[in-house]
Simulated assay, not measured.
Amino acid sequence: MKANAWPLIRKRKNPGGSFAWMVDCGMVNGKRTRYIFASKQAADTKGQQLRVQRVNEGKSALSISAPDRIDAEAALAILKPLGKTLREAAEFFSLHVEIVDRKMLIEELVRELLENKKRDGASYRYLKDLKTRLGIFAAAFPAHEVIAFSSAQLDDWLRALPVGGVTRNNYRRLLGVLFNYALNRGYRLTNPVKATSRAKEIDKPPGILLVDQSERLLESATPDIVPALALGLFAGLRPESEVWKLDWSSIDFESRLIDVAADRTKTAKKRFVKIADNLVQWLLPFYQKSGPISPVGDAYFTRLQKARTAAKIHSWPADCLRHTFGSMHYAHHQNLGESMAEMGHTNPQTFLKHYRERVKPKDAARYWQILPPSAPGKVVPMVAAPGT
């Protein structure tokens, strides 16, 4: 073929009857490339420009050093199955070179995440969970760069954990938080956790305490944590988000109500919780006009652990004080709406799934008669507001 045979230049008739000149370059980088001009002179000029460009590109290719040519051929072999060109790869790399060059280690990412979550006001329990689980993960990959993790690598690590399905999925959830943070901060291009597998979980109702265990726990606790435990068992308040933030001024003995403000609830919704007869007896000896009701942080958990040990309660299911309240309240009162309102629930199906038929009514009746050792009898009278 003659040198000027490419590109092909030919006359074509437009749908309206006029004529134009087409410069047909054939397939260029996998795409059919054509140019349309109104005159043959313009088409010839374009054709000549393309011929000169092709010659120059050929000469440029000959000037590439042998190592660069070998490198380019290897890169093209990698890119061909992906349908991408060497230029596209170079342009993509130039946009993300900072991510590739940033040598952040996984332990550094965990530390940064914890610091920022603390600044964001994350709860004590959530921060402790993050620190514990992600600390175990970071220890398993010392000196490992954040960008180097693959979904397969994370999947293998999760499957190797000697834990049940629920715990494994909890690890997976927190790893998702970690790598999503890395993605948002520009430390990675993807979140590899999304492609990992969830473990099958056996659907079990929340764990609760038995009546005797609840009584032993309160009797074994030190005085400074008794009100907090009583509020969990007999009012269903969450320890960290509600009890820790509760002030004695929010306890209204006259109205027999606890004012749980919106900023002290997990759902950010205000609610009033009734003070049961036996709860009055547990709270009254410690009543103050104002001030915190409970120790917080490690001080709370240290005292809780001592009480559990003294009460010989070895198994401690998550949020078992609140779940015990929900199960005992519904079994005793048999009033779905009232039990849901006390706990701040909005979904009847979820509530019934968790709390219906967990305990027998006769055991629930015993539960609501749990009183301090010094309390007189089982019948608790209405109590006027202290100081009146």
Rank of each mutant, 00 (worst) to 15 (best):
K11V: 07
R12C: 04
N14W: 03
C25M: 14
M27R: 08
R32N: 13
R34I: 15
Y35F: 14
A38S: 12
Q41W: 09
K46E: 11
G47I: 09
N56G: 05
G58V: 10
S63G: 06
I70V: 14
D71L: 06
D71K: 14
L79G: 10
F92Q: 11
E98Q: 11
E98K: 08
I99H: 04
I99E: 14
I99F: 02
R102Y: 06
M104D: 11
I106P: 00
E107Q: 01
L109A: 13
V110H: 09
L114D: 12
L114Y: 07
L114G: 14
E115Q: 11
E115H: 10
G121F: 04
Y126N: 10
Y126H: 15
L130G: 04
L130E: 06
A138R: 03
A140H: 09
F141R: 02
V146Y: 01
I147S: 10
F149K: 00
F149L: 00
A160V: 00
V163D: 03
V166Q: 09
R168F: 01
G176N: 11
A182K: 05
N184P: 00
N184A: 08
V193S: 05
V193Q: 04
K204V: 05
L209H: 10
S214H: 06
L217S: 04
L217K: 03
L218G: 10
E219G: 05
E219N: 08
I225H: 06
I225T: 07
V226E: 03
P227T: 04
F234R: 11
P239E: 15
P239W: 05
V243E: 09
W244C: 03
W248V: 13
S250E: 15
V260K: 04
A262L: 09
K266P: 01
F272R: 09
I275L: 08
A276F: 10
D277I: 01
N278R: 12
L284W: 02
K289N: 07
D298T: 11
Y300I: 05
R303N: 08
R308D: 07
A310P: 06
P317C: 07
L321I: 10
G326F: 06
G326W: 07
M328P: 06
A331F: 13
A331D: 06
A331G: 04
E338M: 10
E342A: 12
N347P: 05
P348W: 04
R356Q: 15
A365Y: 14
Q369L: 14
I370H: 12
P373S: 12
S374Q: 12
S374G: 08
A375E: 10
K378D: 15
M382D: 15
V383Y: 11
V383D: 03
A384C: 02
P386I: 13
P386R: 05
P386L: 06
